[in-house]
Nucleic acid binder design. Structure first.
Lengths: 204, 204, 204, 204
DNA sequence: TATGAATGAGTTTTCATTCAT
DNA sequence: GATGAATGAAAACTCATTCAT
């Protein structure tokens, strides 16, 4: 976290910027390969090649493949949060507030950022307990942002907030699978989804 | 152990009995292991063990791991379709028809059937072109069932049928991730989701 | 155990003798390399090379390096026991009985048999709990043979049987380190050691 | 933790203090790890960690892992000799003299000093020629102390001094394997061993 | 059909050592 | 003296697949 800031405002003081770059390189290479074919299919050798060093050298920066994955995941989640958090800073009417958050969320998950894809798709299954234990709480924390927004919504009687949230996340997450750039923009997609969920699809 | 029992009380209908059982055993074992930790993590040896034969023998029934996966996937999709197709046989008013289909869909994907889980979650990513080429058309054919139902719906102006379908599938697919038995039944879950999408969540 | 017998009296009925041979080959190769530089320094590749197959193929016969080691160890101990057990079959006066056992023991441990060297030198330290748990009881069982012989000895007052046994084993085990063939034979060495321990070294 | 304390109350005698301490720290860490799981299993990283510095820094103090081992071994042997040499300074009757040496030897090898354990157990096998060439002569020099004592003993006719020495060393070395504190003290153990070897175990 | 042995390329990880800073 | 990054080789082990029997 602090890292990114430093990189942004410190021009390069007193040596060793290469080190941080390396770590970043490795994470980028990893994010790329994790995305491309999944965690299992991404070999440490592939990642090392893409990062421009030898396999063994990877272990100077990350203690294991799982450690590397967790770091990539967390960075992806961080990037996702940043966008959403910024979007909801300006206060608005509750549904507009939720729409702003959704637009930010869909924009970032469709932005073709490998970190983000990891954090927003690969996350739940098929990982070891170790990994799940580190990852799920972070993910939950992120979803809590939306929970708060949803709590503020004025709802029709009989609508369960839990299902509202789940429908929303399901719909947005699903975009990762079918979206192909060129058609509707992420912003429009998000608006349409929120519109359906807010006002219903049925003719009145 | 269960294997022996099954072999005993299945009446052996329509020729080639033992062979078909074996094939079925293998597919069940495969479905189990593909589900448990994902395609890559499931080894042919694990599957063979679970099916009660040796690795080499697997290749008498399926030509490769991918072939085995495709077969499991297709069986999963078949099971899913069967439920939905049955549910929409009785003609109903369009929204009720869609609801019936969604209930059937959610019921089957939450039914803890490994075949179904494969067909409804593992499917899209991280597989070779070969596999994707065989799998995606089948999946599309299944979704086409819903397309037809959706086409019949009377919609509010401005609602795009495509987003309606996607929101619906996103929301239903997502249940696989968060559902835990004991709370609401699959039927109720499906009803709630359709209700939100049909009538909207906003207080009127 | 049964293996050795079969190999001895069955001429080679109905195929698959190669299999048992392979297992034996691997164990011999392993015994050789474990002896030469120690357990850690013996690589599975070395062993595979010496056995005439590829590393991966080793794992058809033994599930792990530790498993292989345990098998080699047990075979070594078996060979050691066989000699000693045979030697004490003929009943004798207690000290003569012990001497016979010691001669057999020293003969076998100095016989340049890699299995035996493993079982009689490498055994105690630096192995994982798993290995130790499998190995130590076997070793104890072997030493129990001597315990019984020692129990039967008429001893000078003040001599503790425990120290007698330990002195004996220490002295015999130590031969593995300093013995070089050509000088005294193992038989003579064993006799001298027993003589010192029995009658004492001091001039009377 | 203990490190810091030591640094505090060691008065810094005879120049080059910090440097010598470091070297000493490294050797202690090395002795510890060599003992714990053997030479091969002790990694330079482990040793560096335990010594409170980084792997690379080890090479300022020792040119290689083997060099480090040799130094540890020699220190262990030095500590062993010191005790024995002190014990035999007071002149005594030959057997008493030998007993004194043995008591000192057993006391030091059972004293739980990692250096000593290295010198008295790990030594002979499985090391490179380089290492063996440096180590064996030192060990022989140490054993020569005992040779001299043994030469002075009045022996029963037919007893070979060589076997006497070997039996003695075998028995004493073996204690390292079976000794567990709380039972007989090292002193008593040594006395019992010498007693058996001197007077014999047989009832007269 | 089934077996069991073998293959060969692959996996993650660890290691002693080097060296510019 | 110490650091931290990197190296390159090697480790144990796994895998999908083949094939003679």
């Amino acid at each position: 976290m602090t890292k990114a800031k430093k990189a942004a405002d410190v021009p390069r003081r007193r040596g060793r910027p290469k080190s941080e770059n390396r770590r970043q390189n490795v994470m980028e290479a990893a994010a790329h390969h994790f995305c491309a074919n999944g965690y299992d299919a991404a070999s440490m050798r592939d990642i090392a090649d893409a990062a421009g060093l030898l396999v063994g050298s990877l272990y100077h920066h990350f203690s294991s493949k799982e450690d590397l994955f967790i770091n990539v995941f967390e960075e992806g989640l961080r990037r996702t949060s940043v966008g959403v958090l910024a979007a909801i800073k300006t206060p608005r009417e509750p549904w507009a507030q939720l729409e702003a958050a959704c637009i930010a969320h869909v924009e970032v998950i469709l932005s073709n950022d490998n970190f983000v894809r990891i954090a927003d798709y690969e996350f739940p299954f098929q990982h070891s307990e170790t990994v799940r234990g580190r990852i799920i709480p972070k993910r939950d924390a992120y979803e809590a942002i939306f929970n708060k927004l949803i709590k503020a919504l004025p709802l029709r009687r009989g609508v369960d907030r839990k299902y509202l949230r789940l429908t929303l996340f399901g719909a947005m997450g699903w975009t990762l699978i079918w979206y192909s750039p060129g058609r509707d923009t992420p912003t429009i997609i998000a608006r349409r989804i929120v519109d359906i969920i807010r006002k219903g699809a049925e003719a009145r």
